[in-house]
């Protein structure tokens, strides 16, 4: 009886076909990912390539652009400082303590993330506008909220603070509570243990959280445009130039704003690199 070798000869075939199908899947996934990356990158690169040069040269002669960038940076910084001061204790409590109403506090802090930003602006206007009791009282003391830098800070704070609280909460949660426990048994009271142990260990995460908040505040438009059209932050200025003079006038402002936004992005990347090291 002769041995039928055809079976042996055809054995590698399934392995070959599975290798081919794996390669086809890899190529398909790479293609989809490339298209997606291009989708995100192309408008930004196109904007900077088209208007970047003009935008940078406009910085020298366009006082309104310079003023709006300075205003944006200043109000975003103030909003971030307020967010850090007010949000850090909340983030710490949410990460560490189990208290009555904890889930309500967490939900309240997430609320601004799900509200459309123009709606957030309208809500803030209702509470802080001159016609409202609070806004009226503040106006009576000389503090005007709507239509002022204060209004811009309020809008930025409202929409971007939840991002800080969420990231700061994660940063605290990553520091094992037992470090604090040990510090307490070594003589530290709650505040001292927080200052000497938890804060330094969470510092990188908190800084990254603040950078994210600042970046979000800089890019805010919807809430600000309702609460304070003037003075104009950079995002409102680019919108104003677009509606008043068209794309060619809006382009340099928009391109400069994109370059401006690259600063926190670079800071975040540097923080992450340092963290990995």
């Amino acid at each position: 009886m002769e041995l039928d070798t055809s079976v042996l000869e055809t054995t590698p075939a399934p392995r070959q076909s599975s290798a081919v199908s794996r390669a086809a899947i890899a190529i398909f996934v790479a293609l989809i990912a490339s298209v997606f990356l291009l989708f995100v990158l192309a408008p930004v690169v196109g904007l900077v390539a088209t208007g970047g040069g003009r935008g940078l040269s406009a910085l020298g002669r366009d006082a309104e652009l310079r003023a709006s960038l300075a205003l944006t940076a200043m109000t975003a910084t103030i909003a971030t400082i307020l967010g850090v001061v007010g949000g850090t204790p909340i983030a710490y409590l949410l990460a560490r303590r189990d208290f009555p109403g904890r889930s309500i506090v967490a939900a309240v802090m997430e609320l601004p993330l799900v509200i459309p930003h123009p709606v957030a602006g309208i809500a803030l206007l209702l509470v802080l506008g001159r016609a409202s009791p609070v806004g009226g009282a503040l106006y009576a003391t000389g503090l005007r909220v709507a239509g002022s830098a204060t209004g811009i800070v309020c809008a930025m704070l409202f929409v971007s603070a939840p991002l800080y609280v969420s990231a700061a909460r994660e940063a605290f949660a990553r520091v094992d509570a037992r470090y604090e426990s040990v510090a307490r048994t070594l003589g530290d009271d709650v505040w001292r243990a927080f200052r000497r142990i938890t804060l330094p260990l969470a510092a990188r995460g908190l800084t990254a959280a603040a950078v994210v908040m600042w970046a979000r505040a800089v890019s805010e438009f919807g809430a600000i445009v309702i609460l304070t059209y003037n003075p104009k932050v950079a995002s409102v200025l680019s919108y104003d130039r677009f509606t008043s003079f068209g794309l060619s006038e809006a382009l340099p402002v928009a391109a400069v704003l994109v370059l401006f936004a690259l600063v926190p992005l670079a800071a975040l990347r540097a923080l992450r690199r340092e963290g990995r090291a």
Binding site: R178, S181, V182, A183, T185, D188, D189, L201
Partner: peptide, 20 residues
């Protein structure tokens, strides 16, 4: 009474040395 006033020490299995 707060931990810092109990005059005790604790050593965990994972030590929890302050890494910074």
């Amino acid at each position: 009474v707060a931990p810092e006033r109990r005059r005790l020490g604790i050593v965990y299995q994972h030590a929890f040395l302050f890494p910074h």
